[in-house]
Design a protein around this nucleic acid. Structure first.
Length: 261
DNA sequence: CCAGACGTTGTT
DNA sequence: GTCTGG
DNA sequence: CCAGACGTTGTT
DNA sequence: GTCTGG
């Protein structure tokens, strides 16, 4: 999953959907709504501060561990995801599981599917609001400049409905209870972790094809996440038959649904 | 003990 | 095909 | 994750 | 920081 995402929310929307006011948003000025976000870019997360108060914090996607050398060139593409199944075993993530959990606020994310020798991007999102994902964060002090907060998004096996597109998906927190469990629980035993990381398979999960233009990083047009109306090959060559076929039941191919609608 | 690595994705 | 850069 | 480059020689 | 390999 998830080497590309969308957080086109306004500051107001970020605040209202997180339940945290803009006054409690650290580095708010670093956040700019982005239709097509890659690792290395700033995005808002929710976490508890030292005093146990919820706060928003703009961090860079792509974890850079605190023990990275100060003069090192940060690589945000190395750890933009963390396999939830092995997080408790990997030293690099294990140490963050204690008190450096966060919730990543996104509109949705993108995945690619190989179609007719082309890579077709899809936008995946939840109806009725933002997608809240389980994340871990860290803080690294470079030789020059301010300390940099970074986060990674946990992944899990894809749920049944998304299998056709990809074998992995982000850990989506389905409700307030899951959010609280992820954020609040001081110690998270493996059972709780596994429960939180259950693949999300709800009907709210939707997807549609989008413009291949967004495959290129640096493309930030507002059509990035817009549904692509692509004429089918069949319709192109045999419009009448295709139109007729569209009215009839198709061969059952549940694993290859191409629209989440 | 110290030194050195520490990750994911996909693809096969 | 495979590596690098973002 | 995807996109884009990937090499040498000599000459300017 | 924490685990692995030698």
């Amino acid at each position: 999953m998830c080497g590309r995402a969308r957080c086109a929310l306004s500051r107001e929307e970020v605040a209202s959907t997180s339940g945290v006011s803009q006054e409690r948003w650290r580095d708010v000025e670093k956040f700019q709504p982005d239709q097509n976000m890659s690792p290395g870019h700033w995005s808002p997360v929710v976490k508890y501060d030292k005093n146990g108060q919820l706060e928003l914090h703009t961090m860079k996607w792509g974890l850079v561990p605190s023990f990275s050398k100060p003069e090192e060139k940060p690589d945000h593409f190395r750890m933009f995801n963390a396999r939830s199944e092995t997080v408790p075993e990997k030293g690099i993530f294990k140490r963050l599981l204690g008190r450096q959990r966060c919730i990543v606020l996104l509109d949705g994310f993108y995945e690619w599917n190989q179609e007719h020798k082309q890579k077709q991007p899809y936008y995946i999102y939840l109806t009725g609001g933002v997608t809240k994902m389980a994340g871990l964060f860290d803080c690294w002090a470079p030789a020059e400049g301010d300390p940099i907060y970074t986060f990674t998004i946990l992944t899990t096996d894809s749920s049944e409905r998304l299998q056709w597109l990809h074998n992995r998906m982000p850990v989506i927190l389905p409700d307030k209870a899951a959010e609280e469990r992820w954020l609040q629980t001081a110690e998270l035993d493996p059972k709780d972790l596994a429960a939180v990381c259950e693949p999300f398979n709800g009907e709210e999960l939707k997807w549609h094809a989008v413009t291949p233009a967004m495959s290129r990083q640096g493309y930030h047009g507002d059509d990035c996440a817009k549904e692509l109306k692509k004429p089918s090959i069949t319709a192109f060559f045999k419009p009448k038959q295709a139109a007729a076929a569209a009215q009839l039941p198709r061969f059952s191919r549940p694993q290859k649904t191409s629209s989440g609608k």
